[in-house]
Nucleic acid binder design. Structure first.
Lengths: 134, 134
DNA sequence: AGTGTAATGTTATAATATTACATTTTGCAT
DNA sequence: ATGCAAAATGTAATATTATAACATTACACT
């Protein structure tokens, strides 16, 4: 079986490429402006590519910022769930890969008779660099 | 010292009232349509009231849905952090008040040399009612 | 080659949120 | 009580984020 990323279409590859080469999360319209020279002209083309990339787990959305980030973890199982550390000072984002989050959240949900499927977690604070400066 | 909610202005009270009487989270423009008869005419008036209500902890924003919900916990200390269970079937939302979340997330953050300040957690799944139906 | 599914292209528009600026109200120190 | 500063308000315009609708094309599979 081929890797999902090998099956990507032209638009999907283009969008993923921009994200992978960015050191920061990007907004959809920023992506659009960056790749208009490559034949992508409309927001919808970007959003469609993003939808697909998110679906296969290559990209995650940071909900509170309406921005998108390429996943750096080979075979990231966070197809749907995401966990981020977001620096309030410099906006840098780190993905948490603690797989124990799953079991912890399942338990929290169970207490409320709730059937856990997935989660989005955003921890806001100061990253290592910014801690030192302040 | 008076309760923060006693100091609310007219617009703020109006917006909080709609949210408190709603069984579900509401979107900003839905709030607007609901209260236009009460003299609130522009989106900005709603957003300003929401900002203030969020600041004092009476309202929380559900980031992934762009919707807002009144906090039912008297003296909720979640002024900034939020933790929700969101039903993917019926869209109902329950707020988690597990205060141990704080210490758990602090530890997770520390492992990455990250200084925890606050968090947003959204757990998506099936609520008790919808579990039974499926 | 034919067929069905997914992806694409394009235009328009919906939904969410903020800027800018003039004005009014309110808390409160004098 | 009065005058100042901070907060809140009103209004219009606009920015930002995201989707609807519909016609067309590419591609894997038989």
């Amino acid at each position: 079986m081929a890797l999902a990323s090998e099956n990507l279409t032209k638009n999907q590859k283009t969008v993923l490429n921009v994200l992978e080469n960015s050191s920061e999360p990007m907004k959809a319209y920023t992506i659009l402006y960056d790749i208009q020279k490559k034949g992508i002209k409309s927001p919808l083309q970007v959003y469609r590519a993003l939808d697909k990339l998110i679906e296969i787990g290559k990209v995650h959305k940071i909900e509170s910022r309406n921005s998108y980030v390429a996943c750096k973890h080979e075979g990231c199982n966070a197809k749907t769930s995401t966990s981020f550390l977001i620096c309030e000072n410099c906006d840098s984002v780190t993905e948490l890969i603690g797989n124990n989050l799953f079991s912890y959240f399942s338990k929290q949900a169970e207490k409320n008779n709730f059937n856990y499927k997935k989660h989005n977690l955003e921890i806001i604070g100061l990253c290592e660099n910014c801690k030192l400066k302040n």
